[in-house]
Amino acid sequence: MSPKTPSKLEKILRAGHRAVTSECGPPRGSDPAHIVHKAQLIQRHVDAINITDNQTSVCRLCSLAACIRLKLMGLEPVLQMVVRDRNRIALQSDILGAASFDIHNLLCLSGDHQRFGDNAQGQNVFDLDSMQLLQTVRRMRDEGKFLGGDPVQRPPAMFVGAAANPFADPFEIRVPRLAKKVAAGAEFIQTQCIYNLERFEKWMELVRDRGLHEKVFILAGVTPFKSAGMARYMKSKVPGMDVPDEVVKRMAGTPKDKQAEEGITICVETIQRLKAVEGVAGFHIMAIEWEERVPEIVERAGLFPRPTV
């Protein structure tokens, strides 16, 4: 199918290339140098860069402004948008704001609950949920209409994505839930960090059984461990994360000064194995505050150079 938007990410995926995306968290301040530096570290090794939207509910420079920075650098941003903080007026307005800077990728998310962040006493919005945000942006793009029904002048030309967590509970609805997101308009998916490969492969099998891999591009999410401590933390403290004991053991059994290397190696091995899984259309590398190691992961995983489209 030919691309429906000017998105480079969409072009790469529709051309049949394995896509590689990564993500950067904006700073807790107004200095743009931070985001520019992070992007420079990875720009040659990824096709598009997600900018997180106040992740874990910790207040940061806004995703939209950081995405504009990337555009000014000639890069391809993926605007992450959570429905926690904005109602349907603000969401539609920000979609138009992003479109006015020709930001062509949007990732629709619920967002972590605010109790995890630095404003736990705040109100949350959740006027729409992530699926309804997908529907909203697709309506704006495909029908050229606001939710209220009025026409949108110069509709947003956005490639629309969503997250999927194959590891959250209950497992039996994880694939139906993906089907729902596809029905709501998702064109690409970035998954939660994958450490339990068996469970992910089982999920992909169920995805293929329903033919969903032919309707949506699935980018497998990976995050390298910096240390055994991080592995333990991800296993026990991060909701919806599935880190098998043997992975924690492998990190813990590595001498402290070699744990970072081991974390990178596990990440590369994960990508290598998942490359063979039918329906995995690419990889989303979430190197949390560790962007400098992304190029090495991409190269060692055999995903470099990146295609030009």
């Binding site: 619920s110 967002g111 959740f126 949920d129 992530s130 997250a163 959250a168 509970d169 909701p239 919806g240």
Partner: peptide
Amino acid sequence: CAKRLLNGPCGGSTAGKCEISKDVEC
């Protein structure tokens, strides 16, 4: 639902519990 999701659950649902607390049912 702590996020009043009409199309849930979110990715934070673990073993029947909500991401905000193990004492809260999903």
